[in-house]
Write a protein that binds this DNA or RNA. Structure first.
Ligand code: FES
Ligand code: FES
Lengths: 146, 146
DNA sequence: ATAATAAAGGATAAAATAGTCTTTTATTAT
DNA sequence: ATAATAAAAGACTATTTTATCCTTTATTAT
């Protein structure tokens, strides 16, 4: 287990994939191609994208030439929106040692150091926009595949 | 889900508890008192400590006046030993987006930023020693309870 | 030696996460 | 209108994580 749940890892990779495959040309990309492109089990990914679609994080249309895409607003959203939607806010605000709530008044031994790391994670995910890596993904400098 | 598994959270809290309760006086502390002290389910914690004991991270003796304790060598060990034993090394070396392996040659979009955070976590856990907070725990300045 | 104590070990149980399959609904091209 | 296409929805299965319970083994005090 890493920092994110498997569901969340797939979600982030899928959204990056959709972004770089459909940005600009107003195209759509189907679940099959996404699953292949990010090396994920297709039916499981379908469920995940269904959820992201309901939440408005990705856009989709049914039928021929249908598929998933991202509008301009979505491309500008921070990665933290995906993480919050899928894994919740624990990673941003929760106590590292699992206390009910992280607090300055009743801190756990790791509080000070951990708070710092947690904030760096939050900052990174908040500053990173979904469409930010499109160029590098198109040119193959960055990878979404296992 | 936080950074660590529930098992690992309990493990760290329990080891901190044993440390500050038994350091110096060569005493022992029983599972019941530990479970109470860190707000964890007793039988589950028993399993976890059993495992840590087998691995030599905590010490224990059976019978009357028995219980768990930490020898001087154990008090000097870094927290990263507990995390590695319980959750494995993914948090120290794994790719944040779940690629089979994190690599400079085939990096994921978050690689550079994530590597930095991962290293900070590794550094924090490696620099923090198990017996480091004993004073603050005894005086009640730090908490292990939900 | 014996009884009491406390951890170790093993076998299950419950809950959450991960993954699959089948049917329905919306869209589009013919 | 009709057939083809692709996502949405829903029901289901598998695996992993979290948690409990019961028996055995080691230690100690009497
Ligand atoms: S209390 Fe544990 S991280 Fe703040
Ligand atoms: S490749 Fe993803 S963190 Fe290094």
């Amino acid at each position: 287990m890493g920092i994110f749940s498997k569901t969340c890892e797939y979600a982030i990779r899928a959204v990056f994939f959709i972004a770089h495959r459909t940005a600009g040309q107003s195209g759509r990309v189907g679940i099959k191609e996404i699953a292949l492109g990010i090396d994920s089990p297709e039916p499981f990914l379908a469920k995940i994208l269904q959820d992201l679609s309901r939440r408005g994080i990705v856009q989709s249309t049914k039928g021929p030439n249908g598929g998933f895409y991202l509008d301009n607003a979505s491309l500008e959203r921070p990665l933290s929106d995906i993480v919050a939607a899928v894994d919740g806010n624990d990673i941003f605000f929760g106590c590292g040692l699992g206390l009910k709530q992280c607090s300055e008044i009743n801190p756990c031994p790791l509080h000070n150091e951990f708070k710092d790391i947690r904030n760096k994670i939050h900052f990174m995910l908040h500053e990173t926009k979904i469409g930010e890596f499109n160029n590098e993904l198109v040119t193959g400098m960055l990878s979404l595949k296992k």
